[in-house]
Lab assay of single mutants.
Amino acid sequence: TKVFYNGTYVEFNNPEKAKKYAEKVAKKVGGTFTEKNGQFHVE
């Protein structure tokens, strides 16, 4: 499961961990995250 952010991504074996990371990054940058095709995108 990949989490895309700012033109790069971090890959996780565990979708649950990926979601938590996406939430954390989104919170940090004051943005939101969306799930597309089983991957997370932070905006």
Rank of each mutant, 00 (worst) to 15 (best):
T34D: 06
N37R: 06
K28F: 10
K17G: 10
Y9N: 04
V3C: 05
N37H: 08
G30Q: 07
K2M: 07
F33A: 10
H41F: 15
G7N: 09
A22N: 00
A26I: 04
E16H: 09
N14D: 15
Y5A: 04
F4W: 15
N13E: 15
P15G: 07
K2H: 05
G31M: 07
K36S: 10
V29W: 08
N37M: 08
K24R: 10
F4G: 02
E43P: 03
T8L: 11
V10F: 09
K27I: 10
G31L: 07
Y21E: 05
T34S: 11
A26Y: 00
F33S: 07
E35I: 07
A18V: 01
F4A: 03
Y21I: 05
V10Q: 08
P15D: 06
E35Q: 07
N6W: 06
K28G: 09
T1D: 02
K27V: 09
A22K: 00
K19L: 11
A22R: 00
T34Y: 15
K20F: 07
K27M: 12
N13I: 11
Y9C: 15
V42N: 00
T8W: 14
Y9I: 11
K2P: 04
V3L: 02
K2R: 11
K24E: 15
Q39D: 15
F40A: 01
N6V: 04
K19N: 04
K36M: 12
K17S: 14
E11S: 12
Q39N: 15
K27Q: 12
E23Q: 11
F4L: 05
A26L: 02
Q39C: 13
G31P: 02
A22S: 02
K27G: 07
F4K: 03
T8Q: 11
Y9D: 04
T32V: 12
K17T: 14
K2T: 05
G30L: 06
E11F: 08
Y5D: 03
E23T: 06
G38A: 05
K17P: 06
A26Q: 02
E23A: 10
E43M: 13
K20E: 15
N37I: 04
V3D: 01
K20N: 12
V42K: 01
T32N: 09
K24C: 15
Y21V: 05
A22Y: 03
F4I: 07
F12S: 01
T1F: 14
E11W: 11
A18M: 00
Y21A: 05
G31Y: 02
T1L: 07
N6F: 09
V42W: 04
T32L: 08
T1C: 14
K2W: 06
V42I: 13
P15F: 15
K17E: 15
G7L: 03
K20C: 15
K2A: 06
V10S: 06
N14P: 01
E43H: 13
E35F: 08
T8N: 11
F40M: 06
F33H: 04
T1K: 06
V29F: 10
T1I: 13
K19I: 07
N13L: 12
K17R: 11
E11G: 05
N37P: 02
K19R: 14
P15H: 14
T32P: 02
F12G: 01
G31D: 02
T34K: 10
Y5G: 02
G38T: 02
V29N: 07
F4R: 03
A18G: 04
V25S: 03
F4Y: 13
V10I: 12
T32F: 14
V42R: 00
E16P: 02
K27T: 09
K24D: 13
A26G: 03
F4H: 08
K19C: 12
K28S: 13
N14Y: 05
A18Y: 00
T1M: 06
E43T: 13
V29P: 01
A26S: 08
V25M: 14
G31S: 07
F40E: 02
A18K: 02
E23L: 06
K24I: 13
T32H: 12
E16R: 09
N37T: 05
G31C: 08
N14G: 07
G31F: 03
T32Y: 14
T8E: 10
T34H: 13
H41E: 07
K28A: 15
Y21G: 04
N13F: 10
V42D: 01
V10T: 09
A18E: 03
G7S: 06
K2L: 09
F4T: 03
Y5S: 02
F12Q: 00
K28L: 13
N14S: 14
T1N: 09
K36Q: 11
Q39A: 13
G7E: 06
V3A: 01
P15V: 13
V10C: 15
F33V: 15
A18T: 01
Y5I: 10
G30T: 04
A18P: 00
G31R: 03
G7D: 08
F12H: 02
E11M: 09
E11A: 08
G30A: 06
N6G: 11
G31I: 02
E16V: 10
N13Y: 10
V25W: 11
A26T: 04
F33Y: 12
N6A: 09
G7F: 05
E43A: 10
T8G: 12
K28N: 10
F4Q: 04
T32K: 12
E35C: 14
E23S: 07
K19Q: 09
Y5R: 00
K28E: 14
F33L: 14
K24L: 14
A18D: 02
N14E: 10
V25P: 00
K36N: 08
G7A: 05
E43C: 15
K24Y: 15
K17Y: 12
G31N: 03
F4P: 01
T8A: 12
Q39R: 04
A18S: 01
E11L: 08
N14V: 07
Y5Q: 03
A26R: 02
E16C: 14
Q39E: 13
H41K: 05
Y9W: 13
K27F: 06
K36I: 15
E16D: 12
K28M: 15
Y9V: 13
V29D: 04
K19W: 06
F40R: 00
N13H: 10
F40T: 01
T34W: 12
G30S: 06
A22F: 02
N6D: 11
Q39G: 10
T8I: 11
E16I: 11
T32W: 13
F12Y: 04
F33I: 15
K36L: 12
T1E: 02
P15A: 12
V29T: 11
N14L: 06
K17A: 15
N37C: 15
K36C: 15
Q39L: 06
V42G: 01
P15I: 13
F12A: 01
K2F: 08
H41Q: 08
G7M: 05
E35K: 06
K20G: 08
K19P: 03
T34C: 15
K20W: 10
N13T: 13
Y9R: 00
G7Y: 05
N14W: 04
H41G: 02
A22H: 00
Y9K: 03
P15K: 14
G30C: 14
H41I: 14
K28R: 14
N37F: 08
V29K: 05
A26E: 02
P15L: 12
T1S: 10
K27A: 12
V29Y: 09
V29G: 05
K36G: 06
G30E: 06
E43Q: 12
T1Y: 15
A22M: 03
K19Y: 09
E11H: 08
F33N: 04
A26N: 01
H41A: 06
V25D: 00
P15C: 14
T32A: 08
V42P: 00
Y21F: 14
Q39P: 00
A26C: 12
H41C: 14
K27D: 08
E35W: 07
G38M: 04
H41S: 07
F4S: 04
K20T: 08
G7K: 05
E35P: 03
G38D: 05
K20I: 13
A26H: 01
K27C: 14
N6S: 07
F12M: 03
F40K: 01
K20R: 13
G38K: 05
F12I: 03
V25L: 15
G30N: 11
E11D: 07
T8H: 13
K24H: 13
G30M: 07
E23K: 09
A26F: 00
V25G: 00
E11Q: 10
V3G: 01
G38F: 04
G30Y: 05
T8S: 12
F40G: 00
A22W: 03
N37Y: 07
V3Q: 01
G7P: 00
E16S: 10
E35S: 04
G31T: 07
T32C: 13
E43R: 10
G30R: 08
N13A: 14
N13K: 13
Y9Q: 06
E35A: 03
T8D: 09
E23I: 08
G31Q: 04
Y21C: 12
V42T: 02
G31W: 01
A26W: 00
N14M: 06
V25Y: 06
Y21H: 10
A18W: 00
Q39I: 11
G38S: 05
Q39H: 15
E43F: 14
K20A: 14
V29R: 05
K27E: 11
T32M: 10
F12N: 01
K24T: 13
N14H: 08
G7R: 02
E23V: 06
V3H: 01
Y9L: 07
N14Q: 07
Q39K: 04
